[in-house]
Simulated scan of single mutants.
Amino acid sequence: MLSQKDEWVVEELVPIREKVYQYLKNEILKGELKTGERLVERELADKLKISRTPIREALLRLESQGFVTTVPRKGVIVSQISLEQVLEVFSILSSLEVLAVQLATERLDEFMTKELDELIEETNRLLAGNEDEEISQFHIRINNFLYKAAKSPRLYEMLSDLVDYIRAFAHIGYEVPGRMREALHEHKDILQAMSERQIDKAMKMTQDHIENSRKAYIRTIDSVKKK
């Protein structure tokens, strides 16, 4: 957590509003700022030792992306997301990620092919070990590669926002026993199909991967409701 004023000095290439936005977003993604928690401009400004203007700008941006919500007589809170909203995001994510994999496979160049091979090798190493935390972070790296390799900046931005949304509000799907490793196996198969330029196969595997993640999320929600 940031604690020194020096860390909030305005940098030429990173405006203070961007730093505040990334900080608050990461706190939501990590669960440090929990669903329903109030975000008070004055308190955040005092905590980060900055003016309220970049705080306000960051909150407006987060609200436009669905991470926070303005509630009458309560103020800004971390969004409370319904099951229907999360499932809608999974549906959108499925369509866009399938498109990304299609484009990425079609547009693989020498540089991306080398990175792809490295990811497959790293996937095999992780599957042979027991580092679940490392696997969790590796999923993020794989997604970033897939979106970047599609070579479509707008698609990259849309997918990154959707994945962050899933990470913030639907990450509990990984709590299903074995799901994290199962998902890594699925990612490995997708990468392998891409390496072999099997576009249709890679697209179908991607669709199945998102569907399996959606089902895992629903199973977790159902188990919580039964307790």
Rank of each mutant, 00 (worst) to 15 (best):
Y165H: 06
E186G: 12
E157L: 03
F145N: 07
P153C: 10
E157H: 02
Q192H: 02
H171W: 05
L146M: 15
D189R: 14
Y147W: 08
N144A: 15
A183S: 04
V176Q: 11
S160D: 01
M194N: 06
Y156N: 10
H187D: 13
I190G: 06
L162D: 13
I199T: 14
Y156W: 11
L162M: 05
Y147E: 05
E182Y: 12
A193V: 03
R154Q: 07
Q192C: 11
L155N: 06
E196V: 14
Y174V: 01
F169T: 07
V163M: 11
K148P: 15
L162R: 11
L191E: 14
R167L: 04
L191D: 14
M194G: 09
H185V: 04
V176K: 09
M180Q: 07
K148T: 12
Y174C: 03
S195P: 13
N143M: 11
F169N: 05
M203R: 13
V163F: 01
R167N: 06
M194R: 06
A193C: 05
R179V: 02
A168K: 00
S160G: 06
K204V: 13
I199M: 14
P153N: 08
Y156H: 08
D200K: 06
I172H: 01
P177K: 05
S152N: 07
S152C: 12
I166C: 00
N144M: 05
L146Q: 05
M180W: 06
M194H: 10
N143A: 05
A170W: 03
D200R: 13
K201M: 13
E175I: 02
D164Y: 03
L162Q: 00
I172N: 02
Y147C: 01
A193Y: 11
R197M: 03
D200N: 08
I142V: 15
E175A: 14
A168F: 02
A193Q: 10
G173E: 01
R154P: 09
F169M: 03
R167A: 01
I142G: 07
A149E: 02
R181Y: 10
P177L: 05
A150N: 09
N143I: 09
G173R: 07
F145Q: 11
G178C: 04
N143V: 08
E157I: 04
L155T: 08
E196H: 12
R181W: 04
L191S: 15
Y147P: 07
A193W: 10
M194D: 13
E157Q: 04
A168L: 00
A149F: 01
E196P: 11
L146A: 00
A170V: 09
S160V: 04
H185G: 08
E186A: 11
D189Q: 13
Y174T: 03
K201I: 15
A168M: 00
V176G: 08
I190L: 05
Q192W: 12
